[in-house]
């Protein structure tokens, strides 16, 4: 490879906040994409062990309500994410995301608490494992949302520094997607 003359140093993240933000988004995208792989494993397991069977003991209404809460929270989170990417601070809307996410979790816990699906049968094993994964991600996401709300109590909005807001809402969108896909695979197909 041949030599070339020295060019002005402008291509580093220290001097280029746009590049820094791209870097952060890339990292978060890679993380979310990588977490699709456990979902693929679980979907494989679902069809391997129970085929298309859906337990009649599942409460379809509660399952649907839980998925809808999560879907709504995703929509709001995506709004927050896209606006944060443009430098707008919609932190208060994260309270709605948090509330809807918590409702989705509560609906699922309600379903769990009835134990209508037995963990001792094959569908139950798949059901509790898949929903357990979704709950784990959701709890991590809720901690992230709480951190953004907590930070807002101490710091004034800064249009140049909305990455944290973008990050938690982006993460929550990914988690919501996993949740909704889990619902579709377990309850519908």
């Amino acid at each position: 490879m041949s030599s070339r003359p020295v060019s002005p140093v402008t291509e580093t993240i220290e001097k280029n906040p746009v590049l820094r933000r791209k870097m952060n988004r890339f990292g978060m995208s890679m993380f979310i994409l990588s977490q699709v792989i456990p979902l693929i494993v679980l979907i494989d397991v679902r069809y391997l062990f129970v085929g298309l069977y859906v337990s009649p003991h599942l409460d379809q209404g509660v399952g649907l309500a839980s998925a809808l809460f999560m879907l709504l929270s995703m929509v709001v989170a995506w709004q927050v994410k896209t606006r944060a990417a443009r430098g707008e601070d919609l932190t208060p809307r994260l309270k709605w995301v948090l509330l809807l996410g918590a409702l989705a979790l509560l609906a699922l816990f309600y379903q769990w608490s009835w134990r209508l699906v037995s963990p001792a049968d094959r569908f139950g094993e798949v059901y509790y494992t898949m929903t357990g994964f979704a709950v784990f991600y959701a709890v991590v996401g809720l901690v992230g949302l709480l951190s953004a709300l907590s930070r807002a109590r101490f710091q004034l909005p800064d249009p140049d520094d909305t990455w944290h807001l973008e990050a938690v809402s982006y993460l929550w969108t990914g988690i919501g997607l996993i949740w909704v896909l889990t619902y579709v695979v377990l309850f519908l197909i």
Binding site: R4, V9, E11, T12, I13, M23, F26, G27, M30, S34
Partner: peptide, 15 residues
């Protein structure tokens, strides 16, 4: 891995 891939993608020196 996440850190290294992102670092190499985005923090390479000019040139």
């Amino acid at each position: 891995a996440l850190n290294m891939v992102t670092t190499i993608m985005f923090r390479r020196a000019p040139g």
